[in-house]
Design a binder for these strands. Sequence first.
DNA 1: GTGAAAGCGCTAACAG
DNA 2: CTGTTAGCGCTTTCAC
Lengths: 342, 342
Amino acid sequence: MSNEAHSPRRRRGSEQPTLKEVAEAAGVSAITASRALNHPDQVNERTRARVLEAVERLGYVPNLVAGSLASARSRFIAVIVPSLANTVFIEVIQGLQETFEAQGYQILLGNTDYDTEREYQLVRTFLGWSCSALVTAGLRHSQACRTLLANWDKPIMEVMELGEALDLNVGLDHTEAGRCMARHLLERGHRRVLFVGARLASDYRAGMRYAGHREVLEQAGLAAPLIELDHGGLDAGAAGLARALENHGDVSAIHFANDDLATGALLHAQRLGIRVPHELAIAGFNGLPIGQHITPRLTTIRSPRQHMGQLAASEVIRRLEGKRIQRLQHDVGFELLIGEST
Amino acid sequence: MSNEAHSPRRRRGSEQPTLKEVAEAAGVSAITASRALNHPDQVNERTRARVLEAVERLGYVPNLVAGSLASARSRFIAVIVPSLANTVFIEVIQGLQETFEAQGYQILLGNTDYDTEREYQLVRTFLGWSCSALVTAGLRHSQACRTLLANWDKPIMEVMELGEALDLNVGLDHTEAGRCMARHLLERGHRRVLFVGARLASDYRAGMRYAGHREVLEQAGLAAPLIELDHGGLDAGAAGLARALENHGDVSAIHFANDDLATGALLHAQRLGIRVPHELAIAGFNGLPIGQHITPRLTTIRSPRQHMGQLAASEVIRRLEGKRIQRLQHDVGFELLIGEST
DNA sequence: GTGAAAGCGCTAACAG
DNA sequence: CTGTTAGCGCTTTCAC
């Protein structure tokens, strides 16, 4: 039986059984075996048991590639972030992952390194995998990428920030966050406030926070000087503090673009014997745990990053399941955490 | 032309052009178009230009699913880690990602939540995607998982720890790392040394470090008391310190299972006015940046995590390219970083 | 509830 | 260097 003279192609290296073989072993047709596995309710219970037994006995592992080709859909979700080195994206990914995995979706992770051309390439690749949806960090894309996505009929979710989105959008208002912290510093009586960030062209959301910060200061008739560092991290924060003291010795507060910089600066200030906040106030953004463990505790803004991922995933899943989406856009907000560093 | 009376199936939702259509537009056969894209050197330069032009004009995006089915290989690399909440795994993933992506491989990320049954399910799924290789964190797997992998003929790379591996192995010796830190503490004159870890059954590599620690202490005729916390993080470190002071008030040093715990404890000690290391020495493991920014700097052990990922990926790629692998196992080692906390 | 036939879009194998 | 043919393993469609 089934003994062809020539078998022109048998690539499946090892003797991986196919669905057809499982079906034969169970005495049913391939399609019934398929249904037994994927739509159990469409198959007689006893038939299903026979199929499952055969699956077990033969050690069958479904070929998902073939399934995807035939059905023109994979259960892949493309997730594109600019960096894995930044906790912020990791936490969003965590939220996405737990929610999607629980529904049987598999994440396909891409890293653009803050390069929109790279993003475009990743999107192309991911479309080629018949992804069920795309989640990407941010609203800025190359024109080619926009064109490609405009012709794509699956859910597109842009996370992190809020604005004019391609489709779905879950995020927070970074400009407003910048304003919020600037207002806090003004309330604390600071009049000479410096903003220190890193690579604001790439980390343009930090740039938006600076814009908000600047707006508030200028409305109060104050200058909004900026120091832009060429990389981030704790070391950079310490270096930023040093530069600030050198070039802006008269500032009474520094608004850092994120908690890594702010924490690095705060710990460096301790080493230098600068008393925070009396001699210098320090503020950050993100609400990382470390900021709440150092003394003085860091004044910062906490964003619900994991929740952002969960919400984004839930909304995408709703759409995939054909449920009505009430709003295309969700503002997850933020929270000013006032520590003793300001 | 090519106008069939009935088109039984056209799933590709939008009008995504196929390779065949590109080929027609370029006046070549499908296989030539395929070669022009995937094996440019096998095709006449002018033919290739025509194909590329047609690709551009039609906005063709290759269907990778179909390609994988036909060739029985995807360029997927399955990567399985127990958690995304732990920096350690993220850094390894980063190393893997940059190296694999540079060679055109796509990572398929799975998270087991420290559950070997979940790992088994992930492995099954990933095998179904015709992954080119599997990278997994750790050497411990369920029996079902081992059986499944034993019949798989693609490269398997186990990272993080060293030991009897399924195939390739890149990691470090955690028991030795535990010994190393214990010896350091003994050298510093400590005789009452406590080990504090979290969920050692899940984080069994921390358990191995404790085993090494204990071995050294017992050889010196000392006890090796242990406090096991039910979760990790900075908060837990602070709580661990509190528990230590309460139940082991006479200890002169605490060896924490990782830097998160150690940092949380160290910062908490500062708040309590406990002078480190004079009244209490504190040591960690991982060599996270934060430990080198706090005062006193944390004594810890640094492991080359990103390098571990890069090396693991390189070795897998060598194998995939058919090159000879010189050694199946690589010890990436570790480095004792002596701060002022001990 | 089950099956037969057709084909998803691409590439391997050969032939020229 | 290019083309023809025959599938990869599965699911859709439609019939029973």
